[in-house]
């Protein structure tokens, strides 16, 4: 599904054929050479034809930070808003124009520091927006200050003595906020990233995707310890719905529950696949999803893939439903009657 013509059905027009090229705008991307954002942009542009939306029916809304430039490079409608607030604009747009496909592009500082409240509430209201959060664990655009996902002890320009704050786990926040789709991918895993974005785009409801992204200027190698090609199979676990949680180059390790705690076990010596947890992204009970969102290298392999994917009626559909119900029940509003409501009296000439 790279650059081949993909048949797609636009929501309100003739069947159309779009390719990645159709989604490339006339603005040249201006991120630092080697930035992980280039890959995220490319995978998003490749995924877009999959959804069957005409370009004019897709809107990208961003906040502030390096991620904020993203909409300029997408040949769709785009709105580069203010710091942390993209979910609010997206919510209002989606509520009033439910037929549009609305994406929010954000970063770890934008989404989890200044904009934390909006992430919480757009997710819990199941607003049908697709939030893609680029997590480079640093403030890049402002040139290297500590972020809410920076490591404890990390030295940055504002924490020369080391950060005294414990980092936030973005996917735990998304789950706690009742996001109906929660996933993680990595900028340097193009196929996995494209697949994750495609699945996010097809989900109806509040969607939160964390993309582990490298800032090669201000926080180079933030994820390298487990994402590098030669270690990733041993230090990450690729989640697949319905499959046991197995990882390792030799697929010889897995995760099982010991009481209420997860533990890594080696298969063999009486331990079989039967003992391992089986990934169920559709489980209403989020307990295991919370566990997957919380475990991390070096204690555990880092999970990537779709962690949670449940179906709930979306905010825009519920809102529109109340409008439709009211019209069905009371008829279309009559302005004259509304103005003349309540007790009235007439003054004669």
């Amino acid at each position: 599904m790279t650059d081949q013509k993909t048949p797609a059905i636009a929501s309100d027009r003739e069947p159309i054929l779009l390719t990645k090229k159709d989604f490339v705008s006339d603005v040249d991307p201006r991120w630092c050479p080697g930035c992980g954002d280039y890959s995220i942009l490319a995978q998003a542009q490749k995924a877009m034809p999959e959804f069957g939306y005409a370009r004019e029916n897709i809107v990208f809304i961003s906040g502030i930070g390096c991620s904020g430039r993203f909409p300029y490079y997408m040949n769709t409608f785009g709105f580069h808003s203010i710091h942390g607030r993209a979910p609010t604009l997206a919510t209002g747009l989606k509520a009033s124009r439910p037929e549009l496909m609305v994406w929010v592009i954000t970063g770890d500082g934008d989404a989890l520091s200044i904009g934390g409240n909006h992430i919480l509430h757009s997710m819990r209201k199941n607003v049908d927006i697709k939030v893609v959060m680029f997590n480079n664990r640093i403030y890049g655009l402002t040139k290297g200050q500590v972020s809410p996902t920076s490591d404890y002890g990390q030295k940055t320009k504002t924490t020369p003595g080391g950060s005294i704050n414990y980092p936030i786990h973005p996917l735990v926040v998304a789950l706690a906020a009742e996001a109906s789709f929660v996933a993680r991918s990595v900028d340097t895993f193009p196929d996995h990233l494209q697949e994750t974005i495609t699945r996010a785009g097809k989900h109806k409801g509040s969607t939160f995707v964390e993309v582990l992204q490298n800032c090669n200027i201000f926080n180079d190698g933030a994820h390298r310890e487990f994402t590098d090609r030669d270690v990733r199979d041993d230090r990450m676990i690729f989640l697949r719905h319905g499959e046991p949680m197995i990882f390792g180059k030799d697929r010889d390790r897995g995760i099982r529950l010991n009481g209420v705690r997860p533990e890594v076990v080696r298969l063999g010596n009486g331990i079989t696949e039967e003992d391992l947890l089986v990934h169920d992204e559709t489980s209403e009970d989020p307990t295991i999803h919370f566990m997957l969102a919380r475990i991390y290298w070096p204690e555990f392999p880092v999970p990537v893939g779709v962690i949670r994917n449940v179906t709930r009626t979306t905010h825009d559909a519920l809102l529109q439903g109340q409008v439709d119900d009211a019209i069905r029940r009371e008829g279309r509003g009559d302005l004259r009657a509304a103005l003349g409501g309540g007790e009235t009296w007439t003054v004669e000439r």
Binding site: R85, L89, A90, G92, L93, A95, N117, H118
Partner: peptide, 16 residues
């Protein structure tokens, strides 16, 4: 959820 979100959503609606 707050005053900022309130105006942000309104701007989103007007944009639409």
């Amino acid at each position: 959820e707050d005053e900022i979100a309130a105006i942000g959503a309104a701007i989103g609606a007007s944009y639409g």
